[in-house]
């Protein structure tokens, strides 16, 4: 049985329709009109224990709504969610014990309390035994460097400190599954690397992770599976490597040749590739399908024409694929 089983999950919000301005507000008071907005539409999803799933999509695609449905924060309009056999909103408290949740945009720390007090409150709420609590805190401190921020009142924390503290707070009770909604948003490079390292460790220890993010580096670092949602529907669900193999096939090879060579003669020697001349004489960009032509084959085709002075290869990135999907240029499956 899968750890998370989602079938036909749909969430419709009713939103008032108002004309602009005070007049519109008054008219709505007398004759209210509403419009249904479907945030999540017939989503099916299965997550196996120990999987790390990246859940991505453009702004407003329904990512956060899905996470709120999966965690039982909001009640689905229709469809079914099962997390380890429990319905998150019906068995809210039992489900809360097995999941950890982080919303990067919000903190769960008590605003007026020192971070340490928030942790002990959570420890008591979840009933974490003291020895286990201490062991976990020690580990969190090693990766997230929490020691210095424990005595600080939450409202005085910087964003990076807050996020590290919130990560620890979300995982204090050792959940089976962690829903992390934008855990690296607004962080500097050093803290972000730290957070990613922490997530990799978490995954390697067997915690199931569902990661929502706009940072594609997070995805490539942590996840092996990719789910893309757009306008409330899942439009892709598969392994990250498969996306790359299917859609990120283009490898770009930048060449600086010792002497100028006519573009036509270079194109003739590379019939399967697209060759574009650069700004400087002897500068070319060769785009090839990495499954059909190796970089070595390109070089050996060029060498009889001129010596290669400089060589740079751009590997295809998942980023390109997702950018194309967001822009509507690429339709996946």
């Amino acid at each position: 049985m899968s750890l998370v089983e989602v079938t036909g999950l749909t969430k419709v919000f009713r939103r008032p329709v108002k004309d602009p301005g005070f007049r519109g507000a008054l008219r709505h008071l007398v004759s209210p009109r509403y419009r249904d907005v479907t945030a999540v539409e017939r989503v099916d999803l299965r997550i196996e224990p120990g999987e790390a799933v990246a859940y991505v999509g453009p702004n407003g695609a329904g990512k956060s709504t899905t996470v709120k449905l999966l965690t039982g924060i909001i009640v689905p309009t229709s469809g079914e969610v099962r997390v380890a056999g429990l319905s998150p909103h019906r068995d809210r408290i039992a489900n809360a014990r097995q999941v950890g949740v982080l919303f990067g945009q919000r903190s769960q720390l008590w605003w007026d309390l020192p971070v340490r007090e928030s942790f002990t409150l959570l420890r008591d709420m979840y009933g974490v035994p003291d020895s286990l609590y201490r062991a976990r805190m020690k580990r969190f401190d090693e990766v997230l460097d929490l020691g210095s921020i424990l005595p600080v009142v939450a409202r005085k924390l910087s964003l990076g400190q807050r996020m590290r503290a919130d990560l620890a707070a979300a995982l204090l009770h050792g959940p089976r599954i962690a829903y992390l909604d934008e855990p690296t948003i607004g962080l500097d490079i050093a803290v972000r690397d730290r957070v990613r390292e922490f997530l990799r460790q978490l995954r390697d220890e067997g915690t199931t992770i569902m990661l929502t993010t706009h940072d594609l580096g997070d995805i490539e670092d942590v996840c092996e599976r990719l789910v893309i949602i757009d306008r409330g529907r899942v439009i892709y669900d598969g392994s990250l490597a498969a996306v790359k193999d299917d859609f990120a096939r283009e490898r770009r090879i930048h060449l600086q040749l010792a002497s100028p060579v006519p573009l036509a003669s270079l194109s003739d020697r590379l019939p399967d590739a697209v060759v574009v001349a650069g700004d400087e004489p002897g500068e070319f960009t060769v785009t090839v399908d990495r499954f059909r032509q190796t970089a070595g084959a390109v070089i050996s085709a060029v060498l009889p024409l001129a010596e290669v002075v400089e060589l740079r290869i751009d590997e295809p990135a998942i980023e390109d694929v997702i950018r194309k999907v967001y822009a509507g240029e690429l339709r996946l499956a």
Binding site: R97, V101, Y126
Partner: peptide
């Protein structure tokens, strides 16, 4: 702001 309250095992 009730999101986190709803994912804790406490009424």
């Amino acid at each position: 702001d009730l999101d986190y309250a709803l994912v804790r095992p406490y009424p």
